[in-house]
Amino acid sequence: MRLIVALLLAAAPAAGSAHSPWDTGELSHLPIWASQAVLLAAWLLYVPGAARLRPSPGERAAFHGGMAVAGVALFGPFDDWATSSTAMHMVQHMLLMVVAAPLWVLARPLPQWRAALGRAGDWWWFPLLRAGRHPMACAALHAAAIWGWHLPGPYMAAVANNWWHVAEHASFALTAWLFWWAVLRARRGGELRAALALLFTLMHTGLLGAVLTFAQAPLYYRESRELWDQQLAGLAMWVPGGMAYLTAIAGCAYRWLARLQRGSRSTEATSWPG
C-alpha cells in the first residue's frame, strides 16, 4: 500500500505557469459546449430512430435514464462541486461508469441510432462491437483509463483545464460502455470470462479505493482538498462500485447456471427411452 501511494505521489508533475489562449476566456469553454452538443445529438437522434425501430419499454427507459444520469453528472451541479471536492468528483465518475454506462448497454440504442443515421455510423460502432467480444481486454482498457486519470498529475490537470476534463470523462464513458457491453452482453458460453473481467475490475477499483481511503496524506494537493474528503472519495469508489460489480458477477453466475440447467434438461430429454 505504501509503495502504491509513493508511486502515485511521484507521478504528480510540477504545475506549469504558462497558459495557452485555449485555456482561458471563452475558448476554454469550447470542449464543454462540444461535449454537451454530442450528448444532446445522441439523445435527439434516438427519438426518430425509436419511432422507426421501436425498442422495448425497458430499453427505452434505460436509455433515457442513462442519458439523464450522464447529463446531471457531467453538466449539472456535480461538475461544479467536483472542482473543489475529491469526493464529489469521485461520485461524478461513479455515476458515469457504474450507472449511466450499464444503463446504455441495457438500452441497446445502436439499432435506433442506425435507423436514424443509416449506415453513416457503421465505420466506428462495428469495430467497437467486435472489441466487445473480449471482456478481459475491455476490462484492461477500462482499468488503464481509471488508474491513469487518478494519478495526481492527470487528475489535477483535469480539474484545472476543461480540455483535459472532457478528455477524462470521454475516456471513462467510452471504456466503461465497452466494458459493460462485454460483460452484460457476453455471448453464450462466455459467462465465466465476463465474470472474470468483473472480478478483475472489482479488485483493482477496490485497491484504488483503499489507497485513497487509507493514505496518510492528500494525494491531490490543493488548498480545498482535505484528507477526509479524499477518504470519502475512496469509499465512494469502494462501496457503491463494489456492489455494482458484485451484482453483475451474480448475474453472470445465474446465466451460467441457467445455461447448464437447460443443457442438462435437454440431455435428459434426448436420452429418455421411447
Rank of each mutant, 00 (worst) to 15 (best):
M67T: 09
A182M: 08
P13L: 10
F214G: 09
L199R: 08
Q92C: 03
A143Y: 06
A120W: 00
T270G: 14
L207A: 13
P21N: 06
L30H: 02
W149S: 09
G234N: 06
F172K: 03
L178H: 01
A34W: 08
L30I: 11
S171R: 04
W177T: 14
A250G: 12
P127W: 02
A250R: 15
H134C: 11
F214L: 11
A157M: 15
A160V: 08
P273N: 08
A210K: 08
F63G: 03
A195H: 06
M243D: 02
A182E: 07
W22A: 15
R119E: 07
C138V: 02
R2M: 10
G206L: 07
V211F: 04
L198D: 01
R133K: 13
G251P: 02
A14Y: 03
N161V: 02
A6G: 14
A140G: 10
T247M: 07
L178W: 06
Y220V: 08
L235Y: 01
P102A: 10
A68I: 09
V211N: 00
A115K: 00
A182I: 05
P127V: 03
V105D: 00
M156K: 08
A170C: 11
G71H: 07
A18T: 10
L141G: 15
M243K: 13
A258H: 13
L196V: 09
S85E: 01
H169Q: 13
V91C: 08
N161Q: 07
W164Y: 15
